[in-house]
Amino acid sequence: MAGFVLRRMLLVLPSLFGLLVVTFLLIRTIPADPAVALAGDNATPAQIAAIRESYGLDQPLPVQFLRYLRGVARLDFGESQYSGRPVALDIAQRLPATLELTFAALVIAIGLGIPLGVVAAMHHNRWPDFLLRIGSVAGIAVAAFWLAIMLQMLFAMKLGWLPLRGQLSAGLTPPAGPTGFLLTDCLLAGRFDLFLDAARHLVLPAVTLSLGGLATITRFTRAGVLDTLQKDFVTYERAVGFPRGRLIWVYVLRNSVVATVTQIGLLFGGLMAGAVVVESIYDWPGIGSYTVQAILTADSKVMLAVTLLIGLIYAAVNILTDVVHALIDPRLRESR
């Protein structure tokens, strides 16, 4: 299994390298002359030349690329125009909030989507199936920003059950570490009051973000289970009296989630895009809202760093998807 993971990792290296090349070329080519762009409107030719030299823009392209690689390897992306702090530091501070949010959304989507998909398949073409099918079409069709506002109006403003926005109520100070993940840190610090407050803040954004994924996972699980139920081995397992519950939830389900797992991997793209919207509406201090700021202020260094980060997350999710597939199916473990 370790060898399998290693091979998968080697396989994504070319894609990551490609990402670095493309991003480098974009930086180099979008502004016709980066030095002129960097120097600003009223720069003298001497100032432009100085900038060209100090940024190494007078060097041949391969040398510049190596310098770029060195910068990326050191996580040196320069300073954000907006916050005036190193981009890497901003990201490190904001990433945990986004990871916590996407993780919660994913747990909701998987934890509900898979059982609902199984239930729909077990009641194929009867009312639970119809309801879930309508629900999942609606779940995919509905716009996240609209849903977010509806949920805010109902649960935060009308009923007052949950907070409207933010990660923690005003006046509360989050614990100072050690992981940067708010919920984890609250627990580690033994601050259950803070934990509860943070968890309540997480509910609406996580539910909003999970909905599209929940619908997709339900649909793919349903289709997978329906497909598996046609298999000869299910007939055999019924014929020799496998306990009904184990038959469905163990023997059938494991055969039905291959496509679902692929979808969950692909969902990550949707979750990242969704996080931009959801974080902005709920004022969630993560990468999504940070990216929106960067785009609005044309902060190219931040955009570069975020692009590379998303690429890296994609690669990691890809490896993880393959590993999960191999854990599910023994034939994949040996054939490669």
């Binding site: 298999k231 000869d232 081995f233 007939t235 055999y236 397992e237 014929a239 020799v240 023997y251 494991r254 055969n255 599910i328 199916d329 023994p330 034939r331």
Partner: peptide, 13 residues
């Protein structure tokens, strides 16, 4: 019960 197709009757996973 002994099924018809031993290639398909055992759960592959």
């Amino acid at each position: 019960f002994i099924p018809q197709d031993p290639y398909l009757a055992l759960n592959p996973l």
